[in-house]
Amino acid sequence: MTITPPVSQKSGLALFWTVTFATTWALWFVAIKLGGPAMSSPTVIPYLLGGFGPVIGAIVVRVRRARRRQPVPAHTVRLRLSLRLFWVLPLLVLASATVLAAALLADLLGGPAVSLTEGQKLIATVGGPVPFIISMLIGGPLAEEPGWRGTAYPRLRASMSRLQAGLLLGVVWAVWHLPLFFIPGTIQATFGLISWSGLLFTLSVIPMALLAGYAYERAGVVAAVAVHFGINTTVALLSVNSPVTQASVLAVQIIVAIVLLASRRDRRTDLPVDADPRSHRVVTNS
Rank of each mutant, 00 (worst) to 15 (best):
A152K: 14
R162I: 01
P131N: 10
G128V: 11
W173D: 01
V171D: 02
G139Q: 12
P131V: 04
S161M: 03
R155I: 08
I133H: 00
Q164E: 13
M160H: 12
M160K: 04
P146I: 01
T151F: 08
G147Y: 11
A158D: 02
P131G: 10
A158I: 07
P131S: 05
A165L: 11
Y153S: 10
E144K: 01
G128H: 11
W148A: 00
L167F: 13
M160P: 00
P131E: 06
A158T: 07
G128D: 07
P154G: 08
L169K: 06
V126S: 11
A143H: 02
P129F: 09
W148V: 00
G127N: 11
S161V: 00
P146N: 10
A174T: 12
W173Q: 02
W173C: 01
R149P: 03
W148E: 01
I138S: 07
G128Q: 12
I138P: 01
L169M: 15
W173A: 00
S161Y: 03
V171Q: 07
G139F: 12
L169G: 05
R155W: 12
R157I: 01
L137V: 04
I134Y: 09
R149I: 00
W173L: 00
G140D: 09
G140E: 06
L137A: 14
G150Y: 12
I133Q: 02
G128F: 05
G140I: 09
A152Y: 10
I138K: 12
E144W: 07
G147I: 04
L168V: 14
E144V: 02
W173P: 02
M136E: 10
L137Y: 07
T125F: 12
P129L: 14
V126W: 11
G166R: 14
A143Q: 07
P154R: 14
P154I: 09
G127W: 09
L169T: 03
M160N: 14
L142A: 08
G166D: 04
G150N: 12
A143V: 04
W173G: 00
T151Q: 13
G127M: 09
R155A: 06
P141A: 07
I134W: 11
L169S: 05
V172E: 04
E144M: 03
I133L: 15
P154L: 05
R162G: 02
R162K: 08
V130P: 04
Q164G: 15
F132V: 11
S159Q: 03
Y153P: 05
G140S: 02
G140H: 14
E144Y: 04
R149W: 10
R155P: 07
P154V: 13
Y153T: 06
G170S: 13
L156R: 12
S159D: 02
S135R: 13
W148L: 01
Y153C: 03
L167T: 03
E144C: 00
A158C: 05
P129S: 11
W173M: 00
L168P: 02
R155S: 11
Y153N: 06
W148S: 00
S159H: 11
L156T: 04
G128W: 10
P141H: 11
